[in-house]
């Protein structure tokens, strides 16, 4: 199945990727090729097959409700592109 330019733009927006008009067509082609590979699945009848999310059937482990982490703010904010007064800064969010 081939993707349209509009679909590419919609998906790119959901994924917060910038796709220029020129790129959109190329991306559409690349993605469509892969979808063709993927679409081979559709030939198989899987009506009575349960989806498998994990290779092994195991149950979630639980952690005791204990605080194990201490404040590492100053060290961790060294990694941030921009911070001030202990806050991470981003361009103004308009609600």
């Amino acid at each position: 199945m081939a993707l349209t330019k509009t679909e590419v733009e919609k998906i790119a927006h959901l994924a917060r990727l910038h796709v220029s008009d020129i790129e959109a067509e190329e991306v559409a082609r690349g993605v469509s090729d892969i979808l063709a590979l993927i679409d081979k699945m559709q030939s198989v009848d899987t009506d009575n097959v349960e989806p498998l999310a994990h290779p092994f059937d195991a149950a979630q482990k639980l952690r005791p409700d204990v605080v194990t982490e201490s404040d590492r703010r100053d060290e961790l904010q060294q990694l941030a592109p921009q911070s001030q007064d202990g806050l991470f800064l981003v361009p103004k969010v308009i609600e």
Binding site: V67, E69, R73, L76, G86, L87, F88
Partner: peptide
Amino acid sequence: FSGSATTFGAEPNTQANI
């Protein structure tokens, strides 16, 4: 999902770990 504290009103990002 993590061992960080949940105390209300702490200094910003002092309870936000890796």
